[in-house]
């Protein structure tokens, strides 16, 4: 009996003492945090992807609570809906943004770009790009080792074994921008999703002169300027032998796609053209495939 009593007293006593120590320290060192931070964090997607420019969702929530009008704060993963709910928690105006998607600006598939040497180092685009220009004659194109696939938290990127290029899954891409930051060749761009996901862009980053670019890759932009001339909306500019389509000005008329001599301009998710039967889509062009996938 005595032993039981002693055990109860010792254990119970220890428990009470420790509990009071914990209670007191918790009181003493309590840091005041705006409860709204928790609320905002609840509303966020909790992906901690860094797409907003903050290291994690918590930091973004803090920034939202601190900011006066939510300017420049946008969660690309949650999009407008999440931002609306964040704004309603904080009683502020939400900033609306167009949904974006990542696109790969390189079409240098194995078929289009002959190899000129063999890389045998670490399978990392970053390491290879530190070493040299790449294993083809195009020093601007995709190195094909999938640094972008590795950083994508949403499983939206995968390497196509046949082409050697990464493929963006439009349904999964949240435009967090991780791939944009990871690619040492700067091949990814976040572009406006567009109505019905319809987009037109130049799938090439080669700044070499036309002949050289062509030599390195069959579908390189050669900076010929045909698209610039045909564009009725001044959406296309040529700089450093490379065309760029401004997605805000582009009206998706697809005239540039038709005139491009190297098929370096892509159209995504458009219905097949009426004369598609007559027009030969060159073998290996990814246009058809991407249209079909969504």
């Amino acid at each position: 009996m005595n032993i039981v009593l002693i055990a109860v007293i010792v254990l119970g006593g220890t428990g009470v003492i420790l509990a009071s120590v914990i209670f007191l320290t918790a009181r003493k060192f309590k840091v005041f945090e705006d409860p709204k931070i928790d609320e905002v964090q609840q509303a966020l997607p909790a992906a901690n992807c860094g797409g907003c420019g903050y290291p994690g969702c918590r930091n973004f929530a803090e920034a939202c609570v601190k900011s006066e009008n939510l300017d420049g704060l946008f969660c690309p993963v949650g999009g407008n809906e999440v931002m609306k709910s964040v704004a309603s928690i904080l009683g502020r105006e939400a900033v609306q943004a167009e949904p974006m998607l990542a696109v790969l600006r390189c079409n240098g598939t194995c078929a289009h770009r002959p190899k000129t040497n063999q890389y045998e180092g670490v399978s990392s685009c970053m390491a290879a790009s530190l070493l040299y220009g790449g294993d083809t004659a195009c020093t601007y194109g995709c190195l094909g080792m999938g640094d972008c696939v590795a950083v994508c938290q949403f499983d939206a990127l995968s390497m196509d074994k046949e082409t050697g290029l990464p493929v963006v899954d439009e349904a999964k891409c949240t435009a967090c921008g991780a791939c944009v930051r990871a690619c040492p060749k700067n091949l990814f761009e976040l572009r406006k999703k567009g109505p019905k996901s319809r987009r037109i862009f130049v799938s090439c980053m080669n700044k070499d002169k036309g002949a050289l670019a062509r030599k390195g890759c069959a579908v390189a932009c050669i900076g010929c300027g045909k698209c610039e001339q045909v564009c009725a909306f001044d959406a296309i500019t040529i700089k450093d032998n490379l065309a760029y389509i401004d997605y805000n000005a582009c009206r998706l008329c697809r005239k540039c796609v038709e005139v491009c001599p190297t098929n370096s301009i892509w159209e995504l998710n458009f219905p097949p053209r009426k004369k598609a039967a007559e027009q030969d889509v060159p073998a290996g062009t990814e246009t058809g495939k991407n249209t079909a996938s969504v």
Partner: peptide, 10 residues
Amino acid sequence: MENKLYVSMS
């Protein structure tokens, strides 16, 4: 180049 050279870091 008929014979593709290997390239790697030192």
